[in-house]
Simulated scan of single mutants.
Amino acid sequence: MIIGGDELQQNALGIDWNLIWQCKRVIPKVKVFLWRLLHKGLPLAVNMHTRLVNFDPMCQRCLQENEYEMHCLFFCNTSRQVWFAGQLGIRVDELPLQIEQTIKQAIENLDEEGWIVFANTMWEIWKERNKAVIEHCAFNPQQVLQRINAVLRTEPVLANVIYRNEGISLQEKYEFNAQAWQVVVDASWQVGGRSGGAYVVFDGGKTHSVGLHYFQTEDPFHAEALTLKEAVEYMYDHVKVPTHMMVQFCTDCSNLVLAINQADTADLPTWRPARTVHNLIMELGNRQAELQHVKRETVGPAHDLANLAKRNAINYRDSHIWYCSNMG
């Protein structure tokens, strides 16, 4: 049993949902994914076939079997590779044939750490499956494993460096506009070019997600510019903030703010940061976006995460906040 509770709620599937909902170290969207999975709510090929008769129920990754829940997440050849090579070393041939029994067995037999790995593995396989089927990209088991490992490495640090904002307005803490998105950006650089960058995203004053990136670059200014570039791409390509909504990007790098806001790259150290800044000028100029210079203490959480990315060569994003403690 993973997490105990005074009142255990059983549903028709025989799964104790208290054990899932109360596990703070499983992010909310993974919990919602599990609920949809167990209630036939995912757009798997078999589920779509029941709604649209002409929809092909075949798995588009292997073209060997209909794509139902267990096939998609466990039995398809690419999914098998993830489970076998992952931390749990699961041989999928030994699993039940029904998804309900598989998840129930995992809840009952794995400890809390094992359940976190199990739940995140299913989620990352599902995301990679969507890229393969919808975007026609090759399913990459190695990338799935790297993302899972990044989650597990960053999890303890996130508990200490991300401000949870439980009922506390970001506007009150940092004097930002709580009606807009805010993205706090920072980078960490060391001699030799090893760099880390991170951003913390706030939606209406509430923590939303984070990103961590590892770079090899020639100077600290370029590390700051590359981190801002990653944050801009994340907001408009991944979060998909509408073009009419305001996004405030906040950094303690005054030279970067000056170069972008004045559209002047003449005094930048080399051509590489000049090119990055030029692209940022073009990108932000087409958006409802502001770039602001803030005090060093304001970017504290992003700074700590940037150091983590630099030390451990971590690349990760879309880590929605789940159990982070207050930073008072």
Rank of each mutant, 00 (worst) to 15 (best):
A150N: 09
E233K: 13
M327Y: 04
G205M: 07
D219F: 06
E100M: 05
G86K: 00
I107Q: 09
T207V: 12
D304P: 05
A302V: 04
I15G: 12
I134G: 05
A178I: 06
H238K: 12
Y236C: 01
N261A: 10
E112Y: 08
H213R: 14
G285E: 00
N120E: 09
A309D: 05
V183M: 02
H303L: 10
G14W: 04
I103T: 08
T207Q: 08
L110F: 14
L13M: 07
C59M: 04
N140Q: 12
E100Q: 12
L170N: 13
E233I: 03
D237L: 05
T227K: 00
Q81K: 13
Q182P: 03
Q171M: 11
E155C: 06
L305I: 14
P96D: 07
K104R: 13
G41H: 01
G193C: 06
V46Y: 01
N109S: 15
E166P: 10
K229G: 04
H320K: 09
G211N: 07
I168D: 04
F139P: 05
K229Y: 10
L152C: 04
A85N: 12
R129H: 09
E69I: 01
V210C: 12
V144C: 14
L13I: 08
I20R: 09
L152W: 01
G205C: 02
T298W: 02
N130Y: 08
H71S: 03
M235W: 00
V32I: 11
I116G: 06
Q87H: 04
N120T: 05
D186N: 14
Q22D: 11
T298Q: 05
N77L: 11
H303C: 12
N312G: 01
N326F: 09
G14I: 04
I90E: 01
W21V: 12
F118T: 02
V144L: 08
F221W: 05
R129A: 03
A85K: 09
I99P: 03
L256C: 06
W123K: 03
K24D: 02
L8H: 14
W189A: 13
Q22I: 00
D186W: 09
